[in-house]
Design a binder for these strands. Structure first.
Lengths: 332, 332
DNA sequence: GCGGATAAGTATCACGTGTCAACCCTCCCT
DNA sequence: AGGGAGGGTTGACACGTGATACTTATCCGC
């Protein structure tokens, strides 16, 4: 191979047409399926030619004429990127590829406007939102012509929100061995935390339901000394503490802080995390954690994804069932 | 807002031209930097009009005519996506935005060919590779016209590879309290592990250098029972074990397995992880871990990024200095 | 006064595609 | 025989941009 390498000219639909002995318009019609039905013979000729040339339509040309790209943006929260989200991204990537879409992963930056602008630049055909976007931002995307997935019923009861359910589950788990002073431990990080508020609300609701005082919110950095300081600040009362954590990571920090303060676990300090990470089950004491089953969400995303190519008018739109279970460890 | 929402027609360079009272060609010239030969007055008119309309050129149109998109792909290993990589992605995203590039994050799938094809579909102007791509794949990308970043000197000594350094550092740290039976613990996961081999090689080299037998490679799943089984299988000898781990996560699993086997840490079992994660410093015993300073890599990427717009011919290309330090914990 | 250089701006092409409107041909009905 | 119907196919336009080559006006030197 010489130093002078050609820019690898790719075949165009014109090349396919020439090889198949038809016009470019015919090629376009057949390859996009939408065309009035051509006889099987012509179809076969075109498909064979396209295959031989390994023809792949230019995304740029296509985007230019349709005003829309072949891109699907997945908007991912910028918090710790656990295997939970990783699996979801992989899954969506595969499904999208089956629809001929290219997936773009975008991390939600601390500047929402900038993030939105970056997404709009792609002119994506759809945006998968994990619950980061506000109603107005979803509106903007929708008006730009992008499908926002998963579609959310307009009048969704916030009580059915997955994070609300998680918060309630945490509180219930923490309280199953008698009343305790409830706390919600948020992640202290420069990054955004889109899910925290919902989980905190869920804990509050559960506390109200049990006739307990509203839980306090504390911020736990992922560093021993500062985490210990933060926990010590709320430890004054002599009632045993029960901390629902944003995360298994935060839960590990709370456990470490409790240990540093000489608290017995779970007698003096009980802790529940979220995500049921592998690490949480490997540390000592083993974490009690809320596992999120995202199969329903996956299913919903898949169906919404499918309805992009075949624009279904307006199916019943059942709400995503929040499916959650508790992994019992040694911390609650 | 009625149900009939216009697709939000965006301004084109023609609109700018009309508003500025010049031709579209003039707008194109001025906006693409060629405008040095236009008088200041005209420049100002065009720039003002573009600003007023908030004109942003269509990526599709631009890509169509240039044959290249405004996209920069970051290829990220599909292993646990730690804050290390997260920071790097954020950093690159910001820098790329300053160059007017859109960043696309792509996780390296288990199928390299598919990943490569997906990247090529974007016709990216550059690809940031964290050491996943092989020489042939880099060649393909280069031939397609994409800059591969960071550029690697052709005849790089594999001994200077960052992963090799990490492996050597692990071995040295594990051996600082006398000779032990060295092991390398790889992650058992369905995902690819692009960095493991280099780290293993580094440990082997260090062992040879010390006149010790070559370390064995074991696979440690992130699950207590199976991890324990895996560790027990190599524990037969009575010499104390010293395990260099792919990861802090793996290190935590090894520690847990050792605890399950009744081994004292670090007397019977010493462990070193990689990444110096926050969690590793919160568990008990606190992990000893190798921290990777990626400032040099960042710097290199930034400079390579800059040389895309201003195509520098061939600067000296200094190798990226592998900068590593050991966080001393309680496990080695 | 005149040829030629230079400045300022623009007409035009090319990129690759989707799709509308039109065309040709055959068949059938009256 | 004439004409409508309709299946099969295609020509032509539009999308928005970057860049080349070209035109026109101005100015300089002799």
């Amino acid at each position: 191979m010489t130093a002078e390498t050609k820019p690898t000219k790719r075949p165009t639909s014109f090349d396919v047409a020439k090889l198949a002995g038809v016009s470019r318009a015919t090629v376009s019609h057949i390859l996009n399926g939408q065309g009035s039905r051509f006889p099987e013979e012509t179809r076969a000729k075109v498909l064979k030619a396209a295959g031989e040339l390994n023809y792949q339509p230019s995304p740029a040309g296509r985007a230019l004429v349709t005003g829309r790209s072949d891109i699907l943006v997945i908007l991912v929260p910028n918090t710790t990127f656990g295997s939970n989200l990783q699996d979801l991204v992989d899954n969506v990537t595969q499904r999208a590829a089956a629809h001929g879409l290219s997936v773009v992963v975008r991390f939600a930056g601390s500047n929402p406007g900038e993030t939105l602008a970056a997404i709009l630049r792609f002119r994506p055909v759809a945006v998968v939102d994990m619950g980061i976007l506000g109603a107005d931002e979803r509106e903007v995307l929708h008006n730009s012509g992008a499908a926002v997935i998963p579609r959310i019923p307009a009048s969704e009861d916030p009580t059915h929100d997955i994070n609300h359910v998680i918060g309630r589950t945490m509180a219930k788990t923490l309280l199953r061995n008698g009343p305790r002073q409830l706390l919600y431990a948020a992640l202290l990080d420069e990054r955004l935390d889109p899910f925290g508020p919902g989980r905190f609300e869920g804990m509050k609701a559960a506390a109200r339901h049990e006739g307990l005082p509203e839980p306090e919110r504390i911020e736990i950095p992922l560093e021993l000394e500062r985490a210990t300081t933060a926990l010590a600040a709320v430890q004054a009362k002599d009632a045993p503490l029960a901390v629902g954590c944003y995360n298994d990571d935060v839960a590990i920090a709370v456990v470490a802080a409790g240990r540093a303060l000489g608290l017995r676990i779970p007698e003096d300090l009980s802790v529940v995390g979220v995500d049921a990470t592998a690490i949480g089950q490997l540390v000592s004491p083993r974490l009690t954690s809320v596992r999120i089953h995202n199969a329903p969400l996956m299913e919903r995303i898949a169906s919404d994804l499918a309805s992009i190519s075949h624009p279904a008018p307006a199916p019943p739109l059942p709400a995503v069932r929040a499916d959650v279970s508790v992994i019992s460890g040694e911390t609650a």
